[in-house]
Design a protein around this nucleic acid. Structure first.
Length: 253
DNA sequence: GATCTAACTCCAGTTACATCA
DNA sequence: TCTGATGTAACTGGAGTTAGA
């Protein structure tokens, strides 16, 4: 079953399926715990809506704010003063250089502690709050991308399982026909014995029930002899296509 | 030590602006 | 020029954590 989705994105991702722990444990900023007080001090004088006075940094004139965004305080004042909707929200476009540096930083660290955030903000001539928002949005995008990839993979896996199930059902029908025709003869045709590729032994009969993904359990009346083939296939499927996450814990960068 | 509260972070969901076809 | 789709910066509200009173 080679349905491994290949990816060339720069997102660092890992399959996480319900019931399985996502392998992406973002490095905690640690400053949930650590620099709380310092952060409080810093956050006090943040003004996200302050227009950068220097527009020349890195972007060669590309860096520019279209306008300022009304601060919360200003909005509150606006609201209090008249209830009007206030000035339209304007939006910064990050320069390619800013985006590049942010992406670069994100590659190594998915979340920043207050010091890192402040330093990066200073480097990029942005507000710490903007850097924080960017990282939040970036994590969200990363997660979304991961979900899409997982979804795509699960679709393929589902299709593969359905196909396997279809084949097994067909085989059951064939065995039924054979049994009717040669009820006294043992069925040890080599073609019906499946070797487990990893265990390198013919799988023992198991009590596993094969489920048709669409229609529920397959009811089979195959004899014990006939079951050798079927159950070994079941064994194979059970052990080797049990779950995609185990087989394809891929990461995307 | 237990409790409360303030300050902070994160996330999920949403809004709204900028850009492009 | 207008318009709908798309990308994304920014906002909102809730939940969780921590430190200090």
């Amino acid at each position: 079953m080679s349905v491994l989705p290949t990816s060339s994105t720069c997102l660092e991702l890992a399959i996480s399926i319900p019931g399985f722990v996502s392998s992406q444990s973002l490095p905690s900023s640690g400053d949930h715990t650590g620099n709380g007080n310092g952060m409080r001090m810093m956050m006090k004088d943040l003004d996200i809506n302050q227009v950068p006075t220097d527009s020349g940094g890195g972007g060669g004139g590309e860096e520019e704010w279209t306008t300022t965004v009304a601060s919360r305080e200003d909005e509150e004042e606006e609201t209090n003063n008249g209830g009007a909707s206030g000035p339209p929200r304007k939006k910064l476009r990050l320069t390619t250089e800013q985006s590049r540096i942010l992406e670069e930083t994100f590659r190594f660290n998915h979340s920043l502690n207050p010091k890192q955030k402040e330093d990066l903000a200073m480097q990029l001539k942005l507000k710490a709050r903007q850097v924080e928002v960017w990282f939040q949005n970036r994590r969200a995008r990363s997660k979304l991308k991961q979900t899409e990839i997982e979804c795509e993979y699960l679709k393929r896996w589902f299709g593969s399982l359905r196909e396997q199930n279809r084949r097994l059902q067909k085989e059951v029908e064939e065995l039924r026909g054979i049994k009717v025709g040669h009820c006294d003869e043992p069925l040890h045709s080599a073609s019906t014995l499946t070797m487990c590729p990893s265990c390198e032994q013919v799988a023992a009969a198991t009590s596993t029930t094969t489920h048709d993904i669409d229609k529920g359990p397959i009811r089979t009346t195959a004899s014990a002899t006939n079951q050798t083939s079927l159950s070994s296939k079941v064994h194979t499927i059970h052990n080797h296509s049990r779950h995609p996450s185990a087989a394809f814990p891929h990461k995307i960068h």
